[in-house]
């Protein structure tokens, strides 16, 4: 059975139906992972015993397979009376898992900012919170746009893990077509190419952001 281009094209609209779901999961997980990761890193930097706890948590997240997170959230939380939808669990799992990696990226980005920046803010009487938001975070983003973009692509590529929770994302949809028709090559290829296209769009977007951040400060 050869590759049937017409059949492949016919599967495209069916697979793209699940594009919304893939994008929804990817985008919210990127935002969630970045938000959690950034807060973890800021908490870790506060130091002391609490900083050590956060440090341990970051390492723990990174040392655990992503499926463990998804299964734990989905099957164990209900025992404690927390019942979340498969979609919510999927987004929460991806966000938590990648927050550990992004925290490390943010750490490198903040370490590269000269100490004098925070001191100048402090000397002007700017509070800790405002210093993080208006002085540290923008300079950090400029330092880490590229590695952060790589993790965003990784998050996109991890969305098919949600198949284990029966969340209807693109690869799952492709697989459904395959099992209904017994033709695997076409739907899986179409899904693969769609992922590739999305990844390229994210990379372009990150490159654009990087250039913009670089020219805005002309450094």
């Amino acid at each position: 059975m050869g590759f049937d281009l017409d059949f492949a094209i016919a599967t495209l609209p069916l697979i793209l139906r699940a594009l919304d779901m893939t994008l929804l999961v990817a985008v919210t997980s990127c935002i969630g992972a970045a938000a959690i990761g950034f807060n973890l890193e800021i908490l870790r930097r506060a130091g002391g015993a609490f900083g050590l706890v956060v440090r341990f948590f970051i390492d723990f997240i990174r040392a655990t397979p992503i499926l463990v997170w998804l299964y734990c959230l989905y099957f164990i939380l209900p025992f404690y009376g927390v019942r979340l939808s498969a979609l919510t669990v999927g987004i929460a799992g991806l966000s938590l898992y990648y927050s550990g990696y992004l925290a490390e990226v943010f750490k490198a980005g903040i370490d590269a900012i000269p100490k004098g920046q925070a001191e100048a803010a402090q000397a002007l009487g700017i509070g800790r919170r405002d210093t993080v938001i208006f002085v540290i975070a923008p300079q950090m983003l400029r330092n880490i746009a590229a590695p952060m973009g790589n993790y965003f692509v990784s998050i996109l590529k991890a969305t098919p893990y949600l198949a284990v929770l029966a969340v209807p994302e693109m690869l799952g949809e492709a697989f459904d077509i395959a099992s209904d028709t017994y033709r695997y090559a076409e739907p899986l290829t179409v899904a693969g190419i769609t992922f590739l296209a999305l990844a390229l769009i994210i990379s372009r977007g990150v490159k654009w952001l990087e250039d913009r951040l670089a020219t805005s400060s002309a450094r």
């Binding site: 000269p114 100048a120 803010a121 002007l124 700017i126 405002d130 208006f134 002085v135 923008p138």
Partner: peptide, 25 residues
């Protein structure tokens, strides 16, 4: 305070460097 190494905020314009504390503090 004025530092040896200036410590201006490189991502903000000259004007925004001056107004950040006025606005936030």
């Amino acid at each position: 305070m004025v530092f040896q190494s200036f410590n201006l905020f490189p991502h903000l314009t000259v004007l925004a460097n001056c107004t950040l504390a006025l606005r936030r503090v």
